[in-house]
Nucleic acid binder design. Structure first.
Lengths: 134, 134
DNA sequence: AATCAATGTTATGTTTTCTAACACAAAAAT
DNA sequence: ATTTTTGTGTTAGAAAACATAACATTGATT
């Protein structure tokens, strides 16, 4: 029975449970947007035998984050980079082989340009489904 | 922000999120069975605008319980009664107007007949989704 | 033997989702 | 100042998922 407790956390958040319609409601994104983000490999929802997307709670969290980053002026490339870095094991983080310095500088510059933003919309930081699911 | 914390528990378990296909996997019931149980008012899944059933985590829990009760030899009426009693506020529980004594005795008798059962199948008590979703 | 309860199966229609293409406004690059 | 690129909207056509309803089957009850 140990595996139950052990897997519980991972399972419950990675299990593909939600159809796109529900994810749309949960995130207030359009299907078009969600598919576009998948196209850019920001998420990788599972597929049914019939090829319908099925999303996990993790996917929803990620989508909320993406929304947030976009609000902050990041673009696909920037967000992707963030997730790439985040997933990179800390030990080989010192070896960014396939990204030129120029590229990196360019991305950072881009982000900074948008740093100065109007005023906060809601004052209410959205970006984690845990508001609903503990 | 208080409502967030306060509603969290109810929301996360009553929110209609899952299509029937997923519920089938989660419960190992057929669509036919699930619809049959709904027909007998053991569950009341929400509906989309287009009339598709959408289930909550609570619904899934209930279905797992139903499965368990059926295994134990109860029938629809018995299970229904159990849920009716469960939902009845304790104060008016002393007033079971619309059920005749004969009816009640009959139900209990039925349950008892099946009390002596072969041997436990899995030795692993199924009947709460919390194994997966805490 | 006849009935009933729970489930399987099949037929037919509707809703949801898919991909792909074209459109478009705003931002970025030239 | 144009031209390109980005992110998203919209539409069309096809396929998958789901709905209801009817009839079939099987094991238990009467």
């Amino acid at each position: 029975m140990k595996w139950v407790k052990l897997m519980t956390n991972r399972v419950r958040r990675t299990m593909p449970l939600l159809p796109i319609s529900i994810v749309m409601q949960l995130t207030e994104l359009t299907a078009r947007q969600i598919r576009y983000y998948e196209e850019h490999e920001l998420i990788s929802p599972a597929r049914t035998e019939g090829n319908k997307r099925m999303f996990s709670l993790n996917d929803v969290d990620t989508l909320l984050e993406i929304k947030d980053y976009l609000d902050q002026g990041l673009n696909m490339a920037g967000i992707k980079k963030i997730y790439d870095l985040r997933e990179t094991p800390a030990n080989e983080k010192a070896e960014p082989k396939n990204l030129s310095d120029a590229e990196l500088r360019r991305l950072l510059h881009e982000e900074l340009k948008h740093q100065a933003r109007p005023f906060e919309k809601g004052g209410f930081r959205q970006s984690d489904l845990s508001r609903f699911f503990n």
